[in-house]
C-alpha cells in the first residue's frame, strides 16, 4: 500500500468538557476522494478545522506528506498544500471574483514593495500572468463570465464554486471541502460532481469532502468514513457504508426518526 497523503492518527479535540472528536484515525490516499459523513454535531467540521489549524488537537497527530502539521498556523498548513472551502462561504465579498482568486495566487507571483510602488513594466507583466491564471481557474469552475462581479453579489451556487477556484489557486495537493453541496439544487450538485472528478483526473488533486448530502458523496467518493458523536463508527466503500447496520442506526436511522417526529 502506498503511503497516505494525509494521515490523521488518534486525533481528539476537546472544548472544555465537550469531546468534539474522540481519537479519530483517518487516511486520505493519494489521488483519492475520501468522504466523511455523519449527522449534525458528529464532529465533521471540527475535523476539518483541526486539519487546517483553526483548532488545536488535544491529542494525536496529523501528518501530511509524512510531515507533522498539527500545531502549525493555518497559513503555514495552506502553504504546505492543503486548501479548504467553508461551509457558509467565507469569500472576500466586496472584491471581484477575479481578485478573490488572485489573493491565493499572489504568493506565486510575488514582487517587492518597490516594484509595486513604481508599477513599471516588470510589475505589469507579473500582474498580467497572475490575472491570466486566475481567469483560467474561474473558467475551470464555470465562472468565466463573472470575473468582475463582486463576490457577494454572485448567486449562492456560484459563490460555492468561487470558493473552490480560490482554494485551487493555493495550488494544493489536498482539497478539503466543507459541505460543498449544502443548499445546492440537484442540477448544481451534478455540475459540482463533474468539476470535482475532473480536478482529480486532470490536476492529481486528492479531495476530502465532508457532507451530509448523500448524492454527492455516494457518487464520487472512493471511501466514506462515518462519524457519530465524535467517533468514527464505520469506514469503507460507498456500498459497504450504505449497508452497514451501525450507520443505518446512527445516521440514516436518526434522520428517519427525526422526519417522523417533526
Amino acid at each position: 500500500m502506498t503511503e497516505a497523503l494525509l494521515r490523521i492518527e488518534n486525533v481528539s479535540v476537546r472544548f472544555g468538557g465537550l469531546v468534539a472528536l474522540d481519537s479519530v484515525t483517518l487516511e486520505v490516499a493519494p489521488g483519492s476522494i475520501q468522504a466523511v459523513i455523519g449527522p449534525n454535531g458528529a464532529g465533521k467540521s471540527t475535523l476539518l478545522n483541526v486539519i487546517t489549524g483553526l483548532y488545536t488537537a488535544s491529542g494525536g497527530s496529523i501528518l501530511f506528506r509524512g510531515e507533522r502539521i498539527d500545531g502549525r498556523t493555518p497559513h503555514a498548513i495552506t502553504r504546505r498544500g492543503i486548501a479548504r472551502t467553508f461551509q457558509n462561504t467565507e469569500l472576500f465579498g466586496e472584491m471581484t471574483a477575479l481578485e478573490n482568486v488572485m489573493i491565493s495566487l499572489d504568493r506565486f507571483y510575488a514582487y517587492g514593495g518597490v516594484t509595486a510602488a513604481w508599477q513599471g513594466r516588470h510589475y505589469r507583466q507579473i500582474e498580467t500572468s497572475a490575472r491570466d491564471e486566475a481567469r483560467e481557474l474561474l473558467a475551470l469552475v464555470g465562472l468565466a463570465g463573472d470575473e468582475n462581479e463582486a463576490a457577494a453579489t454572485l448567486p449562492f451556487g456560484k459563490q460555492r464554486r468561487l470558493e473552490i477556484a480560490r482554494a485551487l489557486a493555493t495550488r494544493p495537493g489536498l482539497l478539503l471541502l466543507d459541505e460543498p453541496a449544502a443548499g445546492l439544487r440537484a442540477a448544481e450538485i451534478d455540475a459540482l460532481n463533474r468539476i470535482l472528478l475532473d480536478l482529480r483526473a486532470q490536476r492529481q488533486i486528492s479531495i476530502l469532502v465532508i457532507d451530509h448530502v448523500m448524492p454527492l458523496v455516494m457518487a464520487i467518493s472512493d471511501r466514506i468514513a462515518v462519524l457519530n458523536f465524535g467517533r468514527k463508527i464505520a469506514e469503507g466503500t460507498p456500498d459497504a457504508v450504505r449497508r452497514s447496520p451501525d450507520v443505518i442506526a446512527a445516521y440514516l436511522g436518526e434522520k428517519a426518526a427525526h422526519a417522523v417526529g417533526s
Binding site: M95, M102, I103, R166
Partner: peptide
C-alpha cells in the same frame, strides 16, 4: 492597487479566509 493592497483588503473582509488562503 498591488498585491499588498489586495491582501490588506482581503484581511479586512475575512481574516479566517485570508489566513486559509495562505496569507500570514
Amino acid at each position: 492597487a498591488s498585491r499588498f493592497g489586495r491582501a490588506l483588503t482581503a484581511i479586512r473582509q475575512s481574516e479566517t479566509a485570508a489566513e486559509a488562503m495562505g496569507l500570514d
